[in-house]
Design a protein around this nucleic acid. Structure first.
Length: 385
DNA sequence: CACTCGTGGTT
DNA sequence: TAACCAAGAGT
């Protein structure tokens, strides 16, 4: 790792900001420095690409123009606005923080990074981003871009996958952030990291700060940033059960903690929870599910496999393979024993579906074709984006 | 500190 | 295809 003199720091700041002034991206949340705008965009941008966020941001600001609107929003409208963005606890924390600011702080935003971190969903990066962009505080905003850019510029060898490394980078970057334009500086680093200094296919030879890029000058740019590998996703095999009746489709609410918390989905049965790890035929497994529906929930239903390919969905740490089963219940639709409810497909529009639920519904619909279901006769429109 | 939490895109 | 990446935070 190398260290810059004060003179080099000054030259770097000027070069970077001059480039930024000419080449900064025109993004919807860069219209002004309103903390609400900066904050919502930063939360949406966590682990999410800019192009994905833009339409969500525009719709969100249309739906919830002020922090008061967000604080008062009903949960279903909030989740609907977030549908498809993923990491849904971001939306819940966003509203929690809005309520903290509106009700606990009387609408008065804290302005330092340290205070901002007290709010739900605001960690060290987002606190630095809001403090610098909206409030002009001279602090670093260390995200993946900053890790990558400064690791290459200064040949920093610390493993950026380790939590402790954040403090190392903050200590290095903070003295480089200019006191007069901290927000522009941090955003310039991000624009740099999204253009000439991307993770792969980067082109440093055209970079405005290539002369400051030690690893480039040394021809060892591909060594940086140092990052240890992630683990493979864990595999899960499920049966997804599509049961319909005159009352609609049977949905189950997921637990309030864990992946896709509180989402309504077609009931899932984990394949390996059905038997004691003994090899059995698929028809036996279907029998076991039918028995369980009968004994646990008093639902009498004959299930049969659906003629579409297995639904596959990969999360960051899990991969689900879902074999769809279908069945109808014509009578005895009492759900007093089942932790769920019947929902007509005409109501799907107003619900928030996870991507994997959309995939199941989409796959199931393809099997309907000419088949006449009790609930509906035609295919309807809940498509995956 | 290691692990968890979604989705879409690229290689 | 599997692996990795994209403006991270909570537990």
């Amino acid at each position: 790792m190398i260290k810059w003199s004060n003179k080099t720091i000054k030259a770097f700041q000027e070069t970077l900001l001059a480039w930024y002034d000419q080449n900064k991206r025109d993004l919807p949340w860069r219209q002004d420095q309103d903390p609400y705008h900066v904050w919502v965009s930063e939360i949406m941008l966590q682990q999410t690409q800019v192009e994905t966020v833009i339409p969500y941001y525009l719709r969100f600001m249309n739906e919830f123009p002020t922090i008061e609107d967000l604080a008062a929003a009903p949960e279903d409208k909030l989740m609907k606005a977030w549908e498809g963005l993923g990491y849904y606890s971001r939306a819940r924390n966003l509203q929690k923080a809005a309520q903290q600011i509106v009700f606990d702080y009387q609408g008065q935003w804290p302005t330092t990074a340290k205070e901002l971190q007290e709010l739900s969903g605001i960690g060290p990066y987002t606190a630095g981003a809001i403090a610098s962009i909206a409030f002009g505080q001279p602090v670093a905003a260390v995200d993946g871009n900053a890790f990558r850019v400064f690791a290459r510029l200064l040949e920093i060898d610390d493993d950026v996958a380790k939590p402790h490394t954040r403090q190392v980078f903050e200590k290095i970057i903070n003295p480089i952030v200019p006191k007069n334009r901290p927000g522009d500086f941090n955003q310039a680093i991000m624009d740099l990291g999204a253009s000439y200094m991307t993770a792969t296919n980067y082109d440093t030879s055209q970079s405005p700060v290539k002369d400051f890029n030690q690893s480039y000058l040394d021809g060892i740019e591909d060594h940086y940033p140092v990052k240890t590998k992630k683990k493979r996703p864990v595999r899960h095999d499920y049966f997804g059960v599509v049961i319909h009746s005159k009352a609609g489709y049977l949905f189950e609410k997921r637990p309030s903690h864990g992946i896709l918390a509180n989402f309504w989905m077609f009931p899932l049965f984990d394949r390996k929870n059905l038997t004691d790890d003994q090899p059995v035929t698929e028809s036996t497994l279907i029998d076991i599910i039918e028995t369980r529906l009968q004994t646990d929930y008093q639902l009498s239903v004959a299930l049969h496999p659906v003629s579409t390919p297995t639904v596959v969905h990969t999360f960051t740490h899990q991969q689900w393979k879902i074999k769809l089963l279908e069945g109808q219940i014509a009578e005895n639709i009492d759900l007093s024993y089942f932790p769920g409810k019947w929902i007509h497909s005409s109501e799907f529009d107003q619900m928030t579906f996870s991507k994997v639920q959309s995939k199941m519904w989409s796959a199931y619909q393809k099997t309907l074709k000419s088949t006449q279901s009790i609930d509906e006769s035609a295919v309807d429109q809940k498509t995956n984006r």
